[in-house]
């Protein structure tokens, strides 16, 4: 595994005197192999962005370990942290706030040069910038020298991906990077990510709330709810045969243009399977009455078929 999360937990202190604990992420385990494209799917408040930020060392881990190429990332300091960022980068949801509004957009490139390539001469650096802009399908003449508010959301997101490519990264955390974009540009950015994976062998953690996007693009998927992974596995398997009731609910809620909501619900009901509790999902779970354990024990993630895991007591009973 080149990236590995082991029992990663994040607790935020909330309440007036910091007396209450909010478990944003709880005992999350997963790994990524090199060149893999994995989706982390969850709704707002599920902890999906917190996981991304912990991997990027922007938020600290309360307990558990995140390892990159066998090294605990929390131990990185100065030079080793810089080396880490040379290989691992992130792009976030809101493209406009990723730019310092008083500087031109190119500033994000300049920062990369100053920090990572201080010795490179300007000519060579310019070539490198042109190359990476080309790689994300931007015309350097059109985008360089502009202020962020003069560029479109799609251009800004590509620009940030280009920034990451300047570093020869091998892992990218893409947190909801297309949810603010219009449908017509959305798909281009998504295709770009997939191309980069193919061409450069980039590993990508694609964080999204949209199942159809997750399906379109990723090899493996994880379904997150209230800080816990409820189901994970090969994308096709999860979509063809969603086992956790929450995954089913998500599947039934995605607006699609080929089937109406009622049809999807009916289909999923046919495939009905049973469930559990202690389970984070039990309050909203549609199968609650059928299972007593749910109140008592947290269901563990269990492999139900090859490369397809689900955390649901109902699945253990089979």
């Amino acid at each position: 595994m080149f990236l590995n999360l082991d029992k990663v937990t994040k607790v935020f202190k909330t309440g007036t005197f910091g007396g209450q604990d909010l478990h944003a992420v709880e005992d999350v385990d997963f790994g990524l192999t090199e060149g893999e494209f994995v989706s982390l799917i969850g709704e707002s408040g599920s902890g999906k962005s917190t996981i991304g930020r912990m991997i990027l060392r922007l938020t600290s881990v309360t307990s558990g370990v995140i390892e990159y190429r066998g090294k605990d990332i929390s131990e990185f300091r100065r030079q080793s942290l810089k080396d880490y960022y040379r290989q691992v980068q992130g792009v976030f949801q809101e493209p406009f706030s990723a730019y310092n509004p008083i500087f031109k957009a190119d500033r994000v490139f300049r920062n990369v040069k100053d920090e990572f390539f201080p010795e490179m001469d300007n000519g060579r650096w310019q070539d490198k910038v042109q190359d990476s802009l080309g790689a994300v399908g931007l015309n350097p003449d059109q985008v360089l020298g502009n202020y962020p508010h003069q560029l479109s959301g799609g251009q800004l997101q590509r620009f940030l991906i280009a920034r990451a490519l300047l570093l020869d990264i091998d892992f990218l955390v893409a947190d909801e990077i297309i949810s603010m974009l219009d449908a017509s540009t959305r798909i281009d950015v998504l295709n770009l990510l997939a191309d980069l994976k193919e061409r450069e062998g980039l590993s990508i953690l694609f964080i999204t709330h949209d199942l159809s996007l997750g399906y379109y693009i990723s090899e493996r998927a994880m379904i997150l709810y209230s800080g816990r992974i409820l189901e994970k596995g090969v994308t096709e398997k999860i979509f063809r045969n969603p086992l956790h009731p929450y995954t089913k609910l998500l599947m039934a809620s995605v607006p699609r243009i080929d089937k109406k909501w009622e049809e999807v619900e009916a289909e999923l009901e046919e495939k009905q399977s049973d469930i559990d509790s202690g389970c984070v999902y039990r309050d909203r779970c549609s199968f609650q009455e059928k299972c007593k354990q749910c109140e008592e024990a947290r269901p563990e993630l269990r492999e139900v078929e090859e490369n397809h895991y689900v955390a649901c007591h109902a699945q253990e009973e089979d």
Binding site: D188, N191, L213, Y215, Y216, I217, F239, R256, D258
Partner: peptide
């Protein structure tokens, strides 16, 4: 529009 059941590797969508 990405559709459920459409995969990048099988059917590439265009913007």
């Amino acid at each position: 529009l990405p559709k459920i059941g459409a995969k990048y590797t099988e059917e590439k969508l265009e913007g």
